[in-house]
Every structure is written in structure tokens, then in C-alpha cells.
Design a protein around this nucleic acid. Structure first.
Length: 142
DNA sequence: CACGGAAGAG
DNA sequence: CTCTTCCGTG
């Protein structure tokens, strides 16, 4: 792989969380796609640490739409949601680079887990190892 | 394309 | 609160 091993907390990319799950969050979904090799033609890590490029905006939007049961999702709307992450310090834009954003991994933990101590208690997962299985949900019934 | 205000859904 | 939808601006 072109990009070196990445580490982030396992909860960050776990699909659907647990039974008591809340709705899937967009940045979780992005991380999920990024983790799967089969989507490298659609979205992939590229450039700096945490930086990724959406190679096929329409397809990412379509996939996101399927997951959220929003058949009219498109890149315009998806990107608005990504822009809301700027203030939350989850993401920021890589200016000048088309369809390129960057995760603020250092802040991600603080956003959803304010009381979590990063030095311990979290299992860190390498992005280039571990192949979680995943099934297409919401394909029908929405 | 990228940005961010405004309104509204759940 | 986290988007979704729509849209004017640059």
C-alpha cells in the first residue's frame, strides 16, 4: 500500500456500533470506506497523514444515500455535511486540492469521548490490518 | 468547486 | 444534535 499504517481507535470505524446503536455518522462511514480496499477507486488515503481524496464523488454520495436511505443524496449535500465538520474539528479541507479533505485524528477522540484519556483504555487499530466483514444494509426496504 | 446561512427533519 | 435540503456568493 502506498500509505503507511494508520492508527485510530477501533470505535471510530466500527460499523453500526453496537445493538444500542445510534445512526451511522458520516465520518464513521467515510472511515469505513477508506478501510476497505475495494473502494480505493472511489475514495482513498492520499497525501499527508489523515488526508483522503474522493475520487468518485457521485459514487460516494450514492453509497452514503443507500446507507442513510436518502435516495436523493448527492455530492453537493454530502459535502455540506462534511463542511459542518470543520467547526467540530473532525475534518478540514485541503485547500487547492479538489475533493480532498483531512481528518484531525488528534481531535476526533475529544469530540465524542470528552472524558476519554487517549493514553490508555483505547485499543488502536491499524488501518492496513484487520478485515472486518461488512454487509450491505438498507439495500431494500427504504 | 467550495463555502456557509437558513430552515427543517428525526 | 447530526445531518438533509436549498441556495446565494465567490
Amino acid at each position: 500500500r502506498s500509505h503507511p499504517c494508520f492508527a485510530f481507535p477501533d470505535w471510530a470505524y466500527k460499523p453500526e456500533s453496537s445493538p444500542g446503536s445510534r445512526q451511522i455518522q458520516l465520518w464513521h462511514f467515510i472511515l469505513e470506506l477508506l478501510q476497505k480496499e475495494e473502494y480505493q477507486g472511489v475514495i482513498a488515503w492520499q497525501g499527508d497523514y489523515g488526508e483522503f481524496v474522493i475520487k468518485d464523488p457521485d459514487e460516494v454520495a450514492r453509497l452514503w444515500g443507500i446507507r442513510k436511505c436518502k435516495p436523493h443524496m448527492n455530492y453537493d449535500k454530502l459535502s455540506r455535511a462534511l463542511r459542518y465538520y470543520y467547526n467540530k474539528r473532525i475534518l478540514h479541507k485541503t485547500k487547492g486540492k479538489r475533493f480532498t479533505y483531512k481528518f484531525n485524528f488528534s481531535k476526533v477522540v475529544l469530540v465524542n469521548y470528552p472524558l476519554l484519556d487517549m493514553r490508555e483504555g483505547v485499543s488502536w487499530v491499524g488501518i492496513c490490518q484487520g478485515e472486518g466483514e461488512r454487509r450491505e444494509k438498507c439495500q431494500s426496504g427504504c
